[in-house]
Design a protein around this nucleic acid. Structure first.
Lengths: 242, 242
DNA sequence: TCCCCAGATTCATCCGATGTATTAGGATGT
DNA sequence: ACATCCTAATACATCGGATGAATCTGGGGA
C-alpha cells in the first residue's frame, strides 16, 4: 500500500519539520489532496487515522486542525490501544504499572502541595467498606490519578492512566469485594496519604509498591484459577464463582 | 462525527467481545459495510485508522485480518505517537524512562540467562571511542534493548523502545561525542554488564539510574543553552555550535 | 448596536467505475 | 501421479462526482 500511507507520512513529516504547528489549520481536503497528489477519498483515510491517535482534530463545517499534542491527548490514544491488548497481557501491563506507580508517588511526595493533599483527602471522604462497587472503582481511579498528577509529569500521568483502564479496575474491585479485602485496600490508601503528607518518600514508595503488588498478586491468583489461563474480560458483570 | 467512528467502535467491541480473534479475517469491505450499515468509503476510513495502530492488517487482494495484537505491535503504534510528541516533551519522556529502565534492568538481573550475557557482550564487542556515531547509536539502542528483553516483559520492552526513539538517541550521542563523554558512557555500559553477570540487583539498579540520569542531565543542559528552550529536532544532522 | 438570515465554505457520506494484487483451481505437459 | 502455468474470481486501492449537513461570515433590518 502506498498512497494513503504516504499521505500519513507526509503529514507526519510536516509536523516534525515544524511546517505544521499545534493549532494550525490544514488546507481544505480538496486543496491538500491536490497538493499531496491523491484523491479526497484517500486523503480522508489518512486524516481519519491521524485523528484516531489524536494528532488531528476534524471539525465538520470548519476545517481540520493540528491538536495541541499535549500529553493528555497521548493518553486517549494510548488508552484505546492498551484496552485492546488488555485481554491478553494484563499481568505484564500490571508489572509495568508496578514499576511506575511507586516512582510516581515518590516524586509526588516531593512536589505535592496543600492543594494536592486536600484533593487526596477529598477523594477519600465518604468512602467506606459499604460504598458501592461503582463508587469504589471511581474513587480508586481518582486516588491514583491525583497522586500521579502531583508527580508533575503529564506523560507519566497519561501512561499510568492508560495502563489501568476503567474496565480492569472494575474487574479487580469486583473481585476484591467478594474477598472482603476492601477494608485493607482502603487502609492502604489511607496510609499512603499519610506518608505523602509527611513527605516520607521511602515509605511512600514502599507502601505503593505493596499496594500495587497486592493487586497484581490477586490477579495472578484469579488467573490461575481460570482453567484457560485467561480471565474473562468480555463480561465484566460476572466472575467465575470461587 | 458519527458513522465512521461508530464503525471503529463496533470493530473494537467485536474484538473485546471475542467475536473477532487475533488472526481472524474480516468480511470483505462490501459485506462488512452492509452489516455495519455504512458505505465502503466510510468503512475504509475506520479500517485505515485501526491499521495505523496495528490492530488490523490489510492485505491487498487478499483480505483484512486482525493482527496478533502482540506487545511488539503496540510498540510500533506507540513509537509513531511518541515521536510526534518528542519535539515537545522530551524531558518528561526521559523522566519516565528513568523510572522504567532501572526497574527493567533490575528484573533482568534475576531472569537473565547465559544467552543474554552472551548477547550483551556481543553487542559491546568492537565498540570503542573511535567508533562512528552511527554505530554508537546502534550499539546503544541494542544494549538497552537486550537488557529490556531479558526483563521478560514484552510490553515493558516496547514501551522503553518507544520512549527513546532512534532520532533522540542520535541527537544525544552526537552531543556526547562533541563533549568527549563517549568513553565514560561506554565504561558505564561495561559496568552494567558486569553487575548483571554477577546478578547484583541493587548495583544494577544504581548503575542504570546513574547512566540514564546522566543522559537526562546532559539533555537538560543542552536545552537550556538553546535560546528557544527547545532543542532542534528537525535537523538531526547538525547541532547549534556550542 | 444587536439580531437574524442567506450564502459560502468545509467536512460527511454515498455511489459506481476502474485498476491492481493475490489466491485458488483447472488445464496442461511430463 | 505430479509439478507447472494460466486464468478467473476475489478483494483491496484509488478516483471523481454528487448530495447533505454543520459552521462561519457578512450584510440587512429592527
Amino acid at each position: 500500500m502506498a498512497l494513503t500511507d504516504d499521505a500519513i507520512d507526509k503529514i507526519k513529516e510536516m509536523l516534525l519539520a515544524g511546517e505544521l504547528r499545534p493549532g494550525d489549520r490544514l488546507p481544505p481536503e480538496k486543496d491538500l489532496a491536490d497538493r499531496l497528489g491523491l484523491s479526497r477519498s484517500s486523503l480522508r483515510e489518512a486524516v481519519k487515522a491521524l485523528e484516531l491517535i489524536r494528532v488531528l482534530d476534524v471539525r465538520r463545517g470548519d476545517g481540520t486542525y493540528v491538536t495541541t499534542l499535549e500529553p493528555k491527548l497521548l493518553n486517549e490514544a494510548l488508552g484505546f490501544i492498551v484496552e485492546l491488548h488488555q485481554a491478553r497481557g494484563v499481568v505484564e501491563l500490571l508489572e509495568v504499572r508496578r514499576m511506575l506507580e511507586p516512582a510516581a508517588a515518590a516524586q509526588a511526595a516531593h512536589r505535592m502541595g496543600p492543594d494536592g493533599f486536600a484533593a487526596l483527602r477529598a477523594s477519600m471522604a465518604g468512602i467506606t467498606e459499604e460504598t458501592s462497587v461503582e463508587e469504589l472503582v471511581e474513587h480508586d481511579a481518582e486516588f491514583h490519578r491525583i497522586i500521579a498528577a502531583q508527580a508533575g509529569n503529564s506523560y507519566l500521568s497519561s501512561l499510568l492512566e492508560a495502563l489501568s483502564s476503567q474496565t480492569l479496575r472494575a474487574r479487580i474491585w469486583r473481585g476484591l469485594t467478594e474477598e472482603q479485602a476492601v477494608a485493607r485496600t482502603l487502609a492502604e490508601h489511607d496510609a499512603i496519604a499519610r506518608a505523602l503528607e509527611q513527605r516520607d518518600t521511602e515509605l511512600v514508595r514502599a507502601l505503593v509498591t505493596v499496594h500495587v503488588s497486592g493487586v497484581e498478586a490477586w490477579l495472578r491468583r484469579a488467573m490461575e484459577e481460570s482453567p484457560t489461563g485467561d480471565v474473562d474480560f468480555s463480561a465484566p458483570g460476572q466472575r467465575p464463582s470461587r
